[in-house]
Write a protein that binds this DNA or RNA. Structure first.
Length: 803
RNA sequence: GGGCCCGUAGUCUAGCGGCUAUGACGUCGCCUUUACACGGCGAAGGUCACCGGUUCGAUUCCGGUCGGGCCCACCA
């Protein structure tokens, strides 16, 4: 261990930078494979999306997982703790478009991909450095990017495994589509948006078959532009016209074709008129009806968001233009009976807030709907922290309606290793050829054949759902017996239905087992008033600014206050508390080490007095509780335990009690306790505040490790019941004496002539057993000349005479 | 519509069948004591949302009410 001189002050800025570089240079967090697989702790680290800067939510959730990682390391585990970035997909494309002021759809595909790659490569190092700055102790040698060749290869390999296991298919299907991003999206990428809209009441004629037939009826719709896609009319069975209309044909206005009228409870009485037109496709309900009644398919909207030839004279118009034009025409013909403004909630794409459309197109899907049972079972097999987060997973699995669409009509992603021949047969790459880009490469045996490459790329989740597999393949020598399942998946609750769910799916399919044994779900960091942070509200807090103003340790401390699963407001005062705690650790340890220096020969002394036994008992209990909390992944409880020990017992009392012994008595027997408690304090704080603890560890030769983070937390089993009680009593009395001194406006060292202490009988007995020692301490600590006791109820100090 | 979480001093919170309800910030007062004034010691501040029930005893457990938040579904 490299010992350093103790400075007068702890210079946070330069020292945090120094230790960050020290850890990297000395490879303190480098993974080393042990022989025994039970001695590895494997973390499925979330790969953040390279998006410029780490945000404050990241800084909390990654700190929280790092508390656990560091604790486990200090319990003797080898940490399999990789770090990757999720670089492909729409999020990156949008960033690249913004930075370079380009549009992917307007560029040559290979140029755009090249630009994406370059942009991400440029940003990555600085981006990842934010994680190093907050002290995330991953092994950055085990780094991957989801867009690098090695990961593309793995992603394609497991795609082929899906093919082999018959879990993937390509099919023309109703597909959620974003006209703005011009790509298919998955169910999970939808978001609700409330907006105002017009409900239009439109008259449909009935094809009359005899005299008594109803002439016409009125439907309500917000999407008149879809009239040309109408394939049926549904009427609620309770509707007064239900029986009269059932089985008849309705005539769609303007377009004048006939559609059947069908009774169905799905047509709600209190919505619109209780009669609704079903268009393929206006919304998800239409798909249900389409499937249930085997309705024909009639698509009117093209992928670019304009109407197609089915729309007749409206062809070529954009959706909104068509809506206006049709309404005009309907009005003119007096078919539009009424309009009213309604509040409507629509599905939008979460990345661009564009209203989604449902189109019919060929996409690749992973079969998941038939796995629901298996998936629910899997959710029971790993532990959820906190437990109630499992509900979200269960809810999601039970309500699944779509297979998982993994193809995207975008550019910067993992290519499908797929071609089509002239007859439309699908040709897959073979594993040895991977990675392939079908746009450039051809499969073996087809070199001179005419093949159509699959142009779609995979959704980013199709790759990030493989993170534990990727890590094992890349850094674990593909030794799944050794590494699988992982110990921990840490992540936030907003992506339970994305990343967590997807990873379980892939793990069940490829490895036939759950991916991890524990998941910890962290919450969101809200603004100080408890609202979501967003750029538009201007209430975003940057972790970089917080670090600059305080320190990484301080930020981590604030993160340790928030419990798993809780959404919590960002509170600067918590960061301040962290800052103060780090400062206090520095000072307290500096004080202790000052006296420990050169006293190594006394460290084995066993002649502890009752104060030593008292503090050692408190320490033992603290470590026990600390361990128990951490074993439950409850880092905030663990931190509270060490805080309590540190402030209430160690600094405010033990050190104060010890001063007279250190300065005056030169009591040789106290060094071993001072050493143990001080070292433990540093160790127990190390998972939370890795920088300041590393700093003070190097002020003294605590042991031979080159870093505090390589030391093992020692457990102690001191349990001196009598001394603990006596120490508590001493503390109680001293608190009272301090109170009296404060009330009398005296300093703590003011000399006390005499003091009368009220006690309970059993307390007096306690003292009498070691009266001389007890009084000596009390007198020395509080500068008291004479002590008397009375046995009665009331405030502890009956009277105090101060000189 | 279904599900989940949460209501504790001015603010953020700990606790969760039984001592005087935890700690932090803020407020006020005192103390320049040789680790720290980036400090120490104290004080004030609470109907533990409300109403019932279980219990010898409820902030804690159960039911309901009100309020806040989240997830999912529906959304013509």
């Amino acid at each position: 261990m490299e010992k350093i001189d103790i400075p007068k002050r702890y210079d946070v800025k330069s020292r945090e930078k120094y230790w960050k570089e020290f850890w990297e240079k000395k490879q303190i967090y480098k993974y080393e494979k042990p022989k025994d697989k039970s001695k590895v702790f494997k973390i499925d680290t979330p790969p953040p999306t390279v998006s410029g800067k780490m945000h404050v939510g990241h800084s909390y959730s990654y700190s929280q997982m790092d508390f656990i990682a560091r604790y486990k390391r200090m319990k003797g585990y080898s940490l399999f703790y990789p770090f990757g970035t999720d670089d492909n997909g729409l999020a990156t494309e949008r960033l690249v478009e913004k930075i370079n002021n380009v549009k992917g759809t307007n560029m040559e595909r290979h140029e755009f991909i090249e630009l994406c790659r370059k942009t991400v490569d440029n940003l990555r190092e600085e981006f990842v450095d934010d994680w190093k700055k907050i002290g995330v102790s991953a092994d950055y040698n085990m780094f991957y990017s989801t867009i690098n060749e090695d990961v593309i290869k793995i992603s394609q390999k497991y795609f082929l495994d899906l093919v082999k296991k018959d879990r993937v298919y390509r099919k023309e299907n109703p597909t959620l589509y974003c006209p703005n991003c011009k790509t298919a999206i998955a169910q999970v990428e939808l978001e609700d948006l409330e907006r105002e809209s017009k409900m239009n009441y439109i008259e449909f004629k009935v094809k009359k078959e005899n005299e008594n037939d109803v002439d016409s009826f009125i439907i309500g719709t917000t999407r008149p532009e879809l009239l040309s896609s109408c394939v049926a009319v549904f009427i609620n069975p309770e509707h007064e016209l239900a029986n009269k209309l059932e089985g008849k044909k309705a005539i769609v206005p303007i377009f004048n074709f006939e559609v059947p009228i069908i009774k169905d409870e799905g047509a709600l009485l209190d919505k619109g008129t209780g009669i609704v037109m079903c268009c393929t496709f206006g919304d998800q309900k239409d798909i249900e009806w389409y499937k249930q009644y085997n309705l024909p398919l009639k698509i009117s909207i093209k992928e670019d968001g304009t109407l197609n030839e089915n729309a007749g004279k409206y062809e070529g118009l954009k959706i909104k233009e068509a809506r206006e034009k049709i309404l005009e025409d309907l009005k003119e013909k007096n078919i539009l009976k009424k309009q009213e403004t309604v509040k409507q909630v629509v599905n939008v794409h979460e990345r661009c807030s564009t209203e989604i459309e449902i189109l019919h197109s060929k996409q690749w899907f992973i079969k998941v709907l038939d796995m629901k049972e298996e998936l629910l079972e899997a959710g029971n097999k790993f532990k959820w922290h906190p437990e109630h987060m499992k509900n979200r997973y269960d809810n999601w699995v039970k309500s699944l309606k779509w297979d998982w669409c993994i193809s995207r009509q975008r550019f910067f992603g993992v290519p499908f290793p797929v071609w089509y021949d002239e007859e439309g047969n699908v040709i897959f790459a073979s594993e040895e050829e991977l990675p392939v880009d079908p746009l450039k490469d051809k499969p073996k045996g087809y070199e001179d054949k005419n093949l159509i490459p699959e142009k779609d790329v995979m959704d980013t989740w199709a790759t990030s759902s493989l993170t534990p597999i990727i890590a094992t393949e890349l850094f674990g020598n593909s030794d799944f017996d050794f590494y699988y399942p992982f110990d921990l998946r840490p992540q936030a609750h907003d992506i339970i239905s994305f990343w967590l769910f997807n990873t379980v799916v892939r793990s069940l399919i490829h490895k036939n087992t759950i991916p991890w044994n524990n998941v910890t779900i962290s919450g969101w960091v809200l603004d100080p008033k408890g609202r979501k942070m967003s750029k538009s509200k201007g209430n975003v807090i940057n972790p970089q600014d917080v670090i600059e103003k305080y320190s990484s340790d301080a930020l981590r401390y604030a993160a340790s206050i928030v419990k798993l699963g809780d959404d919590a407001p960002f509170q600067e005062k918590d960061v301040q508390t962290g800052y103060k705690t780090a400062n206090k650790i520095f000072n307290a340890v500096k004080f202790s080490i000052n006296f420990l220096e050169g006293k190594e020969k006394y460290l084995e002394n066993k002649e502890e007095n009752f104060i030593d036994k008292w503090i050692l008992t408190k320490l033992s209990k603290t470590i026990k509780n600390y361990n128990e909390s951490f074993e439950k992944y409850n880092y905030s409880e663990a931190r509270r335990k060490i805080d309590e020990f540190f402030w209430k017992y160690y600094t405010d009392n033990y050190i104060e009690f010890s001063k007279h012994r250190l300065y005056n008595d030169k009591d040789e027997n106290m060094y071993s306790t001072l050493f143990k408690t001080t070292k433990s304090v540093i160790q127990l704080y190390a998972p939370f505040m890795p920088f300041v603890t590393e700093e003070v560890y190097h002020y003294y030769n605590f042991d031979s490790e080159e870093s505090i983070h390589k030391t093992i937390i020692e457990d102690y089993n001191y349990n001196y019941e009598y001394e603990e009680k006596l120490g508590d009593l001493l503390m109680d009395i001293i608190v009272e004496v301090r109170k009296k001194k404060t009330q009398n406006q005296k300093s703590m060292k003011a000399k006390v002539e005499s003091i009368k202490i009220r006690l309970k009988e059993e307390e007096l007995k306690l003292i009498e057993e070691k009266k001389e020692e007890f009084e000596l301490e009390l007198k020395n600590i509080m500068n008291i000349q004479h002590i008397e006791y009375t046995i009665e109820e009331g405030e502890r100090i009956k009277e105090i005479k101060i000189e």
